[in-house]
């Protein structure tokens, strides 16, 4: 059978119970919502017949139409009109590519599904070709480090984490950070991320701080995240999720960077003692690394600038110093 002629195959009725619907070597569907497809089939029936493969032992696997078969089964249909190829007619890699092109023609794959595709391509296609051709085709940067990350997500991550990635709750970059810790710790971090709906940046900080603190304190991550202070933040009914997220990160940062946090607090206190109003602001550089501070004045014209600067000069600005230095 020439795969160019697949469209000429006449669909024939196949009992659904005969079709193996476990995610097979061609499957690239993960974390999807079946309901729209179920509703569509209920209303207008099956429009596109799935493509199946029957091997020499007679067992039938899905090449194209994994979701359609799943939807039909959940509708308790007995059978469906499908195109069937014999196992001898088509190579496994051709099945895989058929499914890939079919999927990409109608939808965007999520990051987990992209990992599934790449993992399934690896046994058949040279790495260089995957990197140069298939990765851009999947909308991914064409480099081996990215390939390695996607493969690891597919091969090493638990279903729960992969679900978080697929639904966009956990960013891929943060998921990669989770690869380096054990699955129980991963699970407790994912719990916090999904309970508090942390932003991508907060997720990164949460992972980084907890991994570091667990090392420093010699405590497992789940044990550390079970601390009373963290529980209190999590269960505080006066705060909404974004507020809880911010409070959690603030707490962890203070634990991880006590000296930096202390300097920031002291600096804030020093500035608050000056009567600067709302239009004059003094800032420090990130982590005080630069020796300079920044003064920002909002003014309308030369005269208002002069007034603001004169007022500013009347304040005790000589008291400003690096917060870790003692008073002169």
């Amino acid at each position: 059978m020439d795969i160019d002629n697949i469209s000429e195959l006449i669909p024939q009725p196949v009992p659904l119970r005969d079709i193996d619907d476990s995610p097979g070597p061609c499957c690239m569907s993960f974390g999807f919502d079946l309901n729209p497809l179920i509703q569509s089939i209920e209303k207008v029936g099956l429009i596109n017949p799935p493509l199946l493969k029957r091997d020499n032992q007679g067992s039938i696997t899905i090449i194209i139409g994994y979701r359609r078969i799943k939807a039909l089964k959940s509708l308790k249909a007995d059978g469906a009109g499908c195109r069937i190829l014999s196992g001898d007619d088509i190579l496994p890699v051709e099945c895989l590519l058929l499914n890939l092109y079919d999927n990409l023609a109608v939808r965007k794959l999520n990051d987990v599904e992209k990992g599934m595709v790449l993992a399934r391509l690896i046994p058949w296609i040279k790495t260089l070709e995957i990197v140069e051709h298939y990765m851009p085709f999947l909308g991914l940067p064409s480099n081996r480090a990215t390939l390695s990350s996607y493969l690891k997500i597919e091969e090493e991550m638990e279903v729960r984490v992969r679900e978080s990635i697929a639904c966009g709750q956990l960013s891929l970059r943060n998921a990669i950070m989770l690869l380096d810790i054990d699955s129980i710790s991963r699970s407790s971090i994912i719990d916090l991320i999904s309970n508090l709906k942390l932003t991508v940046n907060q997720q990164r900080q949460l992972i980084e701080y907890t991994v570091d603190l667990s090392h420093i304190q010699g405590r497992p991550i789940p044990d550390f995240l079970d601390d009373q202070s963290i529980k209190e933040i999590n269960s505080d009914t006066r705060m909404n999720n974004p507020q809880k997220g911010r409070a959690l990160i603030r707490y962890l940062r203070m634990k991880r960077y006590p000296s930096v946090s202390k300097a920031e607090r002291k600096f804030k206190k020093m500035i608050s003692r000056l009567n600067l109003g709302k239009t004059v602001k003094i800032d420090h550089s990130p982590s005080f690394e630069s020796p300079y501070y920044r003064l920002e004045v909002l003014f309308k014209d030369g005269q208002s600038l002069r007034e603001k600067l004169e007022n500013f000069m009347r304040e005790d600005i000589d008291s400003l110093r690096d917060p870790w230095k003692k008073k002169k």
Partner: peptide
Amino acid sequence: SILDGEFVLGLDGKMRYFKPI
């Protein structure tokens, strides 16, 4: 234990100990 210290992003893009440290 070498990563336990308080490292901040330096002006050259490298992580380094907080300045007073």
